[in-house]
Every structure is written in C-alpha cells, then in structure tokens.
Simulated assay, not measured.
Amino acid sequence: MFLNKKQCAAALCLSGLSSVSFHSNAEVLDSKTSFNLGYIHEFSSRSEDSGKYSLPIFSIVNKTTTDWGGFSIGGQIDNLFQVADDLEGEPGNQSFKAFSTVNYNLGDSGFKLWYENFAVGSLSMFEMTNYLGVTYAKSFGDLKTATSVGANYVFGHAGTASNQIQGFNSMAAKFTMSYPINDKLSLSMLFESHINRTDEYRDVFNYDDFGYKLNLGMNYHITDNSILTIQYADRTSWAGYNEGGDSLRFYWSFGF
C-alpha cells in the first residue's frame, strides 16, 4: 500500500502515541519533557555523496519512568521552513521524525521487554522501523549501559507506489552507555545497527546488508533543566545516508 501525505502524517502520529496508552494506570515515578534546538553540520565527502547538507532541527521529547519500567516519546522536524539550501543551492526538503520506546521490567533481573519505533517521512519517502526484543541494563559504578537485541518490522516506501516494503526484514541491535565526569559534564554513546537486511529492504531504500548509526556525545549541564550537547555522528547505510555520512551535531535542551 502506497501512503499519501495525510496517511504518512497519521502513521507518524500513531507511532508516537503507541507508547502512551501502555499501562495508563501505572504509578509515574518521574516524567520530564524537553524542547531541543539543534544544528547538524555535515562535513565529509560521504555526506555529500549521500546528498546530505547542514541544517537546523527542532524536537520535543518526553521521558517517563514508571513502576513497571518506562517509555519515551518524541517528534523532530528537520529544516523547518526550508531555511537551509540543499547541495544544488535550492531550498532543502523538510522531514518529520517520530520515535517512541517502551521498556517493561522483567522482575529485578535487569532484563526488560523492549519495543522501539522510529518513523521518518518526507514528500518522497516514508520509513517506519519497529523493534521487538529484549534489553539488558547493567551499571558498573557510575557507568550505565544497556544492550538490546530484537527483530525489526519495516513498513514504508521510497519514490513510487511499487517501491514499497512491509514485514520483518532484519535483526536490530542497540548499545547505549553514559558516564558522568562530574556534576556538570557527562559523556554518552549510542550504537544502533540493522543486521542481515533482506533483499527487499535493501532494494527499496538502497541500503547495504548491514547498516548502523553511531553517536558520541559530551553534555554540559548549565542547570538541572538546561543542557548543551556536542555530538559526533556517523551514519553508514542508515536513514537516507546511502553512501554514509559524518556530522557534528549541536543541541540546546530545556526541560521541565
């Protein structure tokens, strides 16, 4: 099925709302919403080969911890009002992204049931990934880690009605790590990958068999509610970076 623009918008909204309805009567232990202004500076020939260019971003994210686990939900707009030009000097495209994550504690073992949704849509394409699997969280002193593995259900299209995909089309793996240097400064890392993509998945989005994203970040806490972040990002056969890409990403987040 080929999605029009209204259907894409509806799917993006539903993907974000999916985590909110889960355990609506749970006891909320903590909840925080942040508004994030950022800028992505593409600096490598790989980014240029993928058709990527520097642009501003704006996102809203809520993270909630409950007595059964927790969830996060958010949305992001890239190149709002087309203020950044593409590589041809024309107004660049806007895109919208929605994302949500649910982790359900399996007792006190550190294992959690894991569901994660990511959707991106523009005038020319729509891609939604859905991970279902298990997360294992482990702390080593102040160092916090989480390792997740699962199956990836992909839904979307690129370009034309016939160029579409729907079904389980790869495995997914994710590893996160965070470490506070002091009260003001912390480090973070995220590595996420798709493993053994099917021929159909590769053909529709022009991906390789294996693709990943890597974020290495440094966060400075101005106050408890205001954070500055600088991040190096590597994208390889991932989310439109068909030829890869390297960028520096700058964020200011204000939460409440």
Score class of each variant (00 low, 15 high):
Ala98Leu: 15
Gly121Ala: 11
Asn103Glu: 12
Ser95Lys: 01
Thr135Cys: 10
Gly75Asp: 09
Val120Trp: 10
Gly141Pro: 05
Phe111Thr: 00
Tyr136Gly: 13
Phe140Ser: 08
Gly89Trp: 09
Lys144Leu: 11
Tyr104Met: 11
Ser139Lys: 15
Val83Tyr: 05
Leu143His: 03
Val102Asp: 13
Tyr136Ile: 15
Ala137Glu: 15
Ala98Gln: 15
Asn93Ala: 10
Asp78Gln: 04
Lys112Leu: 14
Ser124Trp: 07
Glu88Met: 11
Met125Phe: 11
Gly110Arg: 11
Ala98Ile: 13
Phe71Asp: 14
Tyr104Asp: 13
Val120Gln: 12
Trp114Met: 15
Gly75Ser: 12
Val149Arg: 00
Trp68His: 11
Gly159Cys: 05
Asp142Pro: 00
Ala137Cys: 13
Tyr131Ile: 08
Gly74Val: 00
Glu127Asn: 06
Phe96Thr: 09
Val154Ser: 15
Asn152Ile: 06
Gly92His: 00
Val102Tyr: 12
Asn105Ile: 03
Tyr104Ser: 11
Asn130Gly: 01
Leu106Glu: 07
Gly70Ser: 09
Ser124Asp: 13
Thr129Asp: 06
Ile77Glu: 00
Met128Val: 07
Gly107His: 04
Glu127Pro: 04
Gly107Asn: 06
Tyr153Asn: 09
Phe126Ala: 01
Lys144Ser: 13
Ser109Phe: 04
Leu87Asp: 06
Gly110Ile: 11
Gly150Leu: 03
Ser148Met: 11
Thr135Val: 07
Thr129Lys: 03
Thr147Trp: 10
Tyr115Val: 14
Leu132Arg: 07
Asn93Ile: 09
Asn93Gln: 14
Gln94Pro: 11
Asn130Ala: 05
Phe155Met: 14
Thr147Arg: 08
Tyr131Arg: 15
Phe126Ile: 02
Ala98Lys: 11
Glu127Lys: 11
Phe118Glu: 14
Val120Ser: 13
